[in-house]
Write a protein that binds this DNA or RNA. Structure first.
Lengths: 155, 155
DNA sequence: CTAATTTCAGTCAAACTGACATAC
DNA sequence: CGTATGTCAGTTCGACTGAAATTA
């Protein structure tokens, strides 16, 4: 049996973990984009809103670290989310460099819609895998991420 | 133990297969880019050269299908590869719409260098996984790819 | 002075869309 | 005619670099 070929293409390529990962992620990304586009949103919105929902209000730089989104991206995403009244940006009185970002009720509501959407996408993506395989995939990807997060120092 | 958390971040996000996949692929992509940049190349070059090496000369559209690279991308990549004398573009006498692309000796040589590079990267990426886990990861990704290639009709 | 925070402007790789001339 | 091929121009998403102003 050996390494699966995943359709067609040069074996030199299709046997590579990096290629399989890239192709699968591209596909997943397509599904995610479509799913979010259906509710007029993007991946970044979900990531930021989910971060706010689970960790509570925070400054933009803390948000960047928690969400894994690059600090320079945060500004624009927040501009948009604030314009839609999904978050509130208020200056931090304790440290005037900072803004404190808070999730609004509308934002929480929107997040629920995105949540429903993204869960549909998981099903789509993982359709051909049974529960054990899904868990195993998550485990393996988790190990890789943990390892590389540590060595690179994303913490 | 449950689904691995993969560092930090909102559970709503970090438990998602799409997120794990995206993050891991981003990391892998970083490693690949760095590796290829070290020999003055990019991922596309390797993909196209490998495709030519394994399947032999072909038209640009066939190359696109075989490599999984979007047809409109092929043009520019080939422009570059031809300028470096890694491939030759000759008009097809049988069908004057087509160019036949051929790998040169220099191209084959360059491909060897890229091959060495990309294999180093695999090791880097998969370092925390034992051989069985690596095979399992490849298998699972392969299943996903096969499934989605079929339904979308990339063939 | 150094360091952190936010912001702006721009780059980049990969993938894509739409249009078009040419040839089949 | 409709379709396939190659080309060009432009867009998108996610991620990044570099620089700057403000404040700690």
């Amino acid at each position: 049996m050996e390494a699966t070929t995943a359709g067609v293409g040069p074996a030199r390529l299709t046997g590579l973990a990096t290629w399989l990962l890239g192709q699968t992620a591209a596909h997943a990304g397509r599904l995610v984009s479509e799913g979010f586009a259906a509710v007029g949103a993007r991946g970044y919105h979900f990531r930021l809103l989910a971060t706010l929902d689970e960790f509570g209000p925070a400054s933009q730089s803390v948000l960047a670290r928690r969400s894994g989104i690059h600090p320079t991206e945060i500004v624009g995403i927040l501009d948009y989310l604030a314009s839609r009244k999904f978050v509130e940006r208020t200056p931090d009185s304790a440290d005037r460099r900072r803004n404190i970002i808070t999730l609004t009720d509308a934002g929480r509501h929107h997040l629920d819609a995105l949540d429903a959407q993204i869960n549909k996408v998981q099903e789509d993506l993982l359709a051909p895998l049974n529960p054990a395989d899904r868990a195993e995939l998550r485990r393996l990807l988790g190990v890789l991420l943990d390892h590389h997060n540590k060595s690179v120092g994303t913490a």
